[in-house]
Nucleic acid binder design. Structure first.
Length: 948
RNA sequence: GCUCUGGUGGUGGAAUGGUAGACACGAGGGACUUAAAAUCCCUUGUCCGCAAGGACGUGUGGGUUCAAGUCCCACCCGGAGUACCA
């Protein structure tokens, strides 16, 4: 009988479903193991072959762990809220709930065909009220907590209020806490809440009435419509993720991720150590408009306002400061600008304000700026230095003001050159060498070397000088040692429909949270879910979107009276809200009383293995870690880090094929390797489904599109050879491979094996079906091997092959190298086939070890061998080391007076045995040439040297 | 610019410091067949040679080692992340 995958696969899929084979319990004496995939966006395009790559890898690992006796949690769900789902709905003109439902059904159908071992009873969907109820719940907790820097954890806001009440925390609100009324207190607390409402600069398009992402704006105009976009402060919800910056850096030490991904996160968080120093404003006698102030060297009291706080990572270079630069948004600009410079400064600030991020980034090389007319005092040297404004200083980083050290910072240098400002060298490679100005640029940004021309730190190494300056600054009370992070708080509002509603209503313009018991706050129906033109988010169209505080329910918008019935928040949460904590919900997905039970999290702890793309390095993986750490502070999660080990699967790129159309004759197509083809033709994308191994199916090509019906060809060796290129997989390039087609043609097991065989999981690679036949052949051979089996006891050769394979495959799986596992199976089957009829005893174990990779055929064969239960409940076989003793092997290594032979031998072997082994080895015999080995040198491990 | 990765046949890719190129594809040859499909067998890094055999080979140049694709140093080229971040 032939290998009929089309009968076997549905049969066992049905069996697994009916027997709940993959159901996973939270009560098990077995050790736990949690394997998680990044859940997909159910987009309208369905799955392509790139999606299942990571799923197959994690499925193999889950099945393997199960066979090793673990209770494995391996769930799946859908990240169904967010922009892609909404965009698709808008394009097709259907309600996002309907399209999402349809897309999920399609994904599920495709996933089921591949034979994954997901426990579907734990499925979660981020757009399901029973799920987003808990997303909203976490938001309320974030709103009601602040980050206590002394305790270094999140604490209830009520705790902060107590501290303020007792005066243990100083109130910086401009007014003592005791004198504030209820509203003022709430406003003040907003500066502390982990979820807070604040004015944030955004790309606002008045015409479209929405905030746009940076990539939706080009040259100050919206991509869609070409309307002007301005940067504007808008009230938005944000998460104070920056409070966790240090813990997010530290936590990377504890997890088993790739160095590159850890590095991506470290760069993103951007920790830099340095100092904050106040530079006081100098008195300007001419204008006499500025408050007089004192600044003397060595003054011990903090210097009175006004002064500028700057941040620097190089306090040692303070002696080289020749000017200061403020960002255009700096609040003190108007205050300090002299009348003579006023017009110029205002024009510059206005110009800078209207520049988009994009323009600013594109014109990095261009130096621009303006002098304010004001001067500051270098608090260390007492020098008077001019204050400039320039947009190379960013408002969002540090304090938006810098001390410029043009000799040792490339940007300050360019600025100084452009505006003819002085440049003073303060760092040199040698303590006494003061190099000539032209060489400064070479040692620019140098963190090694010595301080020169630098007062009390002259002659010190840079590191010592940094410490000495900070110490002095702290002693003088004009600054302090500090750490800065690049990580910004996460903007959490979206003026969109398809997302989680905020559990927030507004009383007197101040946000209040809904009572927790009233969750979920369900997404209302609206007449029109598209972004609105009148500036309001789509929820502004909802007829029923007001909060009746007394009766604790949602009521008609028209009833808002601002005394008992209040407006609800109109924006929705962003895509990452629902995906930040979904892994926790899988632990206890049906719980109606809590996000998850303490018992569930105590059992599962955290995710042992997380598989997904590295493109989430600066998004989801940061947010989820933040989310988890916050819940940890609340005592809800068991571990600080949510994802212990993380494997990034490489992206599968498309491999496009081209035909070459003659420039003169539109119906003539020239094969790739015909001389002159490059000059005389233009490449055209051709559907990869009508090309086999780069050979074009001419008939199918003619039928493909009407315009090619009359196509003629210039062939080589009677065939048309297509060109190819690696590109993104996309419909427009006709290089999309749909997994269903491959399942139909070769079966799911072949697809699974082939996706693994393609190369290392972590590596990006183009999709190419070239080798799939080889994998298919392998399964047919495997099938045949079982058909020809015998019940006689196993012979030694077969056992050796089996045990070698068990060892290799076990090692391969443990180090996540599935491509070599597949190769090792192929070797094993080839070896066994060559031996003739193989004992069932051997095949029994072979079926088990191959089942994680090709579960359907393994299940079938396992049953054919007479087992009742599923192969999924079998036990992973162990190997017998006795069977694996390696053959003696000798080879010559050098001739320098003496010949050495190196042998690979089992460990623990003695002198005589080694000599005997050399004599027995064919190569050894040849090199000994009848002589006796003189000496055996043992080196560590199993290698020994024999000197002849 | 900085950081991280990687560079091995015609192709995808194997190699705890120990016979480089496993396994697979492709290609060439052969068997079976009226023929095709399917299946099976042989060859396949490069160069020299009829052959036996030999020489050279993991981006380049050095180094460590009895032994280097693997470790160290410098450089070249690709891929990714990030960037007026002070």
């Amino acid at each position: 009988m032939d290998y009929k995958y089309s009968e076997i696969e549905p049969k066992w899929q049905k069996y697994w479903r009916e027997h709940h084979t993959y159901r996973c319990s939270n009560n098990s004496p077995k050790p736990h193991f949690y394997v998680l995939d990044m859940f997909p966006y159910p987009s309208g395009a369905g799955l392509h072959v790139g999606h299942p790559l990571g799923y197959i890898a994690s499925d193999i690992f889950s099945r393997y762990k199960r066979l090793r006796g673990f209770n494995v949690l391996h769930p799946m769900g859908y990240d169904a809220y967010g922009l892609p789902a909404e965009q698709y709905a808008i394009q097709t003109g259907q309600h996002p709930a309907i399209t999402t439902e349809k897309n999920i059904a399609r994904y599920r159908e495709q996933l089921d065909k591949i034979g994954f071992s997901f426990d579907w009873e734990r499925e979660v969907r981020t757009c399901d009220p029973s799920y987003y109820r808990w997303t909203q719940w976490v938001f309320i907790q974030l709103f009601n907590h602040y980050y206590d820097k002394d305790l270094d954890k999140a604490m209830p806001i009520s705790h902060l209020m107590e501290l303020l009440e007792k005066g243990e925390v100083e109130c910086g609100g401009g007014k003592p806490w005791a004198d504030m009324d209820e509203g003022e207190r709430r406003d003040y607390l907003m500066n502390y809440r982990l979820a807070y409402l604040a004015d944030i600069p955004v790309n606002w398009c008045p015409e479209l009435g929405t905030v746009l992402a940076n990539d939706e704006v080009v040259n100050g105009l919206s991509v869609r419509g070409g309307y002007p976009v301005e940067r504007r402060l808008m009230r938005q919800w944000s998460l104070r993720i920056s409070a966790y910056a240090q813990r997010l850096v530290d936590g990377l030490e504890e997890v088993d991720w790739t160095d590159s991904l850890k590095e991506i996160q470290r760069n993103w968080i951007g920790r830099s150590e340095g100092a904050a120093i106040w530079f006081p404003l100098a008195v300007d006698q001419k204008s006499n408009m500025l408050p007089a102030m004192q600044c003397q060297m060595g003054q011990m009291e903090p210097i009175a306002e006004p002064s500028f706080e700057i941040f620097t990572t190089r306090p040692d270079t303070v002696f080289g400061v020749t000017f200061m630069v403020l960002c255009p948004e700096h609040e003190m600009i108007a205050q300090i600008t002299t009348p003579g410079q006023k017009a110029e400064v205002e024009a510059y600030v206005a110009w800078a304000k209207n520049r988009s991020e994009r323009e600013r980034k594109a014109e990095v090389k261009k130096v621009s700026g303006v002098f304010t007319g004001a001067f500051a005092v270098n608090p260390i040297t007492g020098d008077r230095i001019p204050i400039w404004v320039s947009d190379y200083v960013l408002a969002g980083y540090g304090t938006g003001a810098i001390m410029a050290v043009p000799a040792h910072d490339s940007r300050d240098f360019a600025f100084a050159r452009h505006f003819h400002l002085p440049i003073r060298q303060v760092v040199a490679p040698e303590p006494d060498a003061v190099s000539d100005p032209d060489t400064w640029t070479e040692s620019m940004d140098a963190k090694t070397g010595y301080s020169v021309n630098s007062g009390f730190v002259t002659g010190m190494r840079v590191k010592e000088a940094m410490k000495a300056v900070i110490d002095r600054v702290e002693a003088m009370g004009i600054g302090y040692r500090t750490v800065n992070y690049r990580l910004r708080d996460a903007i959490f509002s979206r003026q969109r429909y398809w997302g989680e509603p905020f559990p927030i209503y507004y009383k007197g313009n101040r946000p209040y949270t809904l009572p927790e018991e009233c969750l979920p706050l369900e997404l209302p129906e609206v007449g029109d879910f598209k972004p609105t033109a009148n500036g309001e988010p789509p929820l502004g169209n909802a007829a029923k979107w007001a909060w009746d505080e007394a009766n604790r329910r949602v009521v008609e918008t028209s009833k808002i009276d601002n005394s008992t019935i209040f407006p609800l928040e109109l924006s929705t949460m962003p895509g990452f809200a629902g995906s930040s904590g979904y892994y926790l919900r899988y632990m206890d997905p049906l719980n109606d009383n809590a996000y998850f039970s303490p018992e569930a999290v105590a059992y599962w702890q955290n995710v042992d293995l997380y598989v997904g793309g590295a493109e989430h390095g600066t998004g989801h993986l940061i947010y989820a870690r933040f989310w988890n750490k916050f819940l940890f502070d609340l005592g809800l999660t068991a571990k600080q880090e949510p994802f212990q080990k993380l494997v990034n699967q490489g992206m599968i790129q498309g491999r496009s094929n081209f035909v070459y159309r003659s420039k003169e004759d539109n119906n003539l197509f020239v094969s790739k390797n015909i001389p002159g083809r490059e000059q005389n033709t233009v490449p055209i994308h051709v559907d990869i489904n009508i090309v086999d191994n780069d050979i074009l199916d001419i008939e199918k090509f003619r039928q493909w599109r009407p315009e090619f019906a009359e196509a003629r060809f210039e062939l080589e060796d009677g065939r048309y050879v297509c060109g190819w290129e690696v590109e993104k997989m996309s419909k427009s390039m006709f290089n999309v491979q749909n997994p269903d087609d491959l399942v139909a043609r070769y079966g799911a097991d072949t697809l699974r094996l082939y996706e693994m065989f393609l190369g290392p999981v972590e590596q990006a690679k183009p999709w190419d079906t070239k080798g799939i036949e080889g994998v298919f052949r392998f399964l047919k051979k495997l099938w045949k091997l079982f058909e020809n089996r015998t019940d006689a006891p196993a012979d030694k050769a077969a056992l050796k092959s089996l045990h070698q394979t068990i060892k290799k495959v076990t090692d391969d799986i443990e180090r996540f190298s599935f491509n070599t596992s597949v190769s090792n199976f192929m070797v094993c089957v080839n070896e066994l086939s060559a031996l003739g009829a193989v004992s069932s005893e051997v095949l029994d174990k072979l079926a088990v070890i191959i089942s994680p990779f090709a579960p359907h055929i393994a299940e079938e064969l396992y049953h054919q061998l007479g087992h009742d239960g599923s192969v999924c409940d079998a036990e992973w076989p162990t190997y017998d080391p006795q069977l694996l003793v390696e053959d003696t092997f000798a080879y010559p290594v050098s001739f320098n007076g003496k010949l050495r032979l190196t042998l690979t031998l089992p460990a623990g072997i003695g002198q005589e045995e080694a000599v005997a082994a050399v004599k027995a080895d064919p190569i050894g015999q040849k090199w000994l040439d009848g002589k006796e080995p003189k000496r055996v040198i043992f080196v560590p491990k199993k290698i020994i040297n024999v000197v002849i």
